[in-house]
Nucleic acid binder design. Structure first.
Lengths: 216, 216
DNA sequence: TAGATTGTTAATCGATTAACAATC
DNA sequence: TAGATTGTTAATCGATTAACAATC
């Protein structure tokens, strides 16, 4: 039943297709060829056709792709039409920012709980959700469906909290600490390494400066 | 003078080396072989040696790598020892979270200005830095060295603000809007697509569930 | 010295691109 | 039908891994 495994490179491009198709839809464009889309997205038409064919033949020879139906296909592949229940563990600045970011809910990610230890925030509401003390985590997860744990706790607490969530049956972790989480459990992890990204930007900046300097 | 271009795949691994070497340094480990490091990092020793040799022969046959000197080399390559001056444009939740995140300064990224249009935040201080009205952006950049603009403005304002910063001579942009910024100017851009990352997590979660289901 | 481990070349693997027959 | 464009196979490119001589 399972086809060949889809490479992570392809999967990472899916949200990008999703965004571009959404924009096309809003622009009222009903059909698009891989060539036109390739020009907009700055990738090759060949890659687009290869990528999409990992999931099925969504196009039609001589016509191209119907924007709306392709958008729906990609949405389904990404699970945007489902609702993933998430909890935010760590209601510091980053946790609060994520709790307040409306875009995630549009894509099917609903924050159902926020946890912290700090008495100054426990009991307050962020974006309409009461912050609970982390002692209530076990009870909460047992009583509520929780698909994804968003980890915005301090660095040194991250492994323990991740492990605790995994033991409680949370199958997806979105980690904001600058460490590579590895768990023995059957859990999928996405790391968001903001400082890594910033350091890459710093590197590129220096590299560009050196390039320009050596032009003289 | 220029050696062969270093691939983006290698560059993206540099912060990861940086983090692992920093940890080793803190653990008091003075030397490490590519083999030992490969086991910790879960990559091949061959890749480590290939990666490092893009920048120079930092190791010694029969010995391995000196942790401290390798850490220093990687730090220099990434520019961690320089100071990049950044401004945050958009003092919403994400902008505030980034302004309050101390880790960036440790890696040489110093927030020197924060800008917004909202009268409720203009004039307040975030992490000791006064939020200025965005009308003062031009004046500020002319009077201060600004290397990097951090874009945490609303989606539809992002292209215009990016363009404005580029015209004012800001050479690095760190973009948090879910769009692929492209500028004609000589500017390097790092996109942080949080919702893309979350959607990839959602995909992986579904994929794992389907895999487990079909095991039965 | 002998053992260990690098730096580097060569082999392999996987991802991207090109090409084109199928077909709408 | 003729033109356009897909789906898919084959070719190319680049990145990862293996191998090993050099050498500390």
């Amino acid at each position: 039943m399972n086809k060949k495994k889809i490479s992570i490179a392809v999967i990472k491009r899916l949200p990008r297709y999703y965004r571009y198709l959404y924009d096309l839809l809003k622009l009222g464009i009903t059909r698009i060829s891989s060539k036109e889309l390739s020009e907009r997205m700055n990738i090759t038409a060949s890659q687009i056709r290869q990528d999409l064919n990992c999931f099925g033949g969504f196009g039609q020879q001589g016509y191209g792709y119907n924007v709306e139906s392709l958008f729906n296909e990609i949405s389904n592949i990404l699970g945007v039409n489902e609702t993933f229940h998430t909890i935010i563990v760590g209601a510091g600045h980053m946790g609060q920012a994520l709790a307040n970011y409306g875009n995630f809910e549009k894509r099917g990610f609903k924050v159902v709980g926020i946890f912290d230890v700090n008495p100054a925030v426990v009991g307050t509401a962020i974006n309409g959700i009461e912050v609970l003390h982390i002692d209530k985590l076990d009870e909460f997860i047992k009583q509520n469906k929780v698909d994804i744990g968003i980890l915005t706790v301090p660095y040194d607490q991250t492994p323990a909290v991740a492990d605790r969530l995994a033991r409680l049956g949370v199958k997806g972790l979105w980690n904001f600490s600058p460490m590579d989480l590895e768990l023995e459990h059957d859990v999928v992890i996405e790391n968001v390494h903001l400082s890594d990204s910033l350091m890459v930007l710093g590197y590129k900046l220096n590299e560009m400066r050196n390039r320009n300097k050596s032009k003289n």
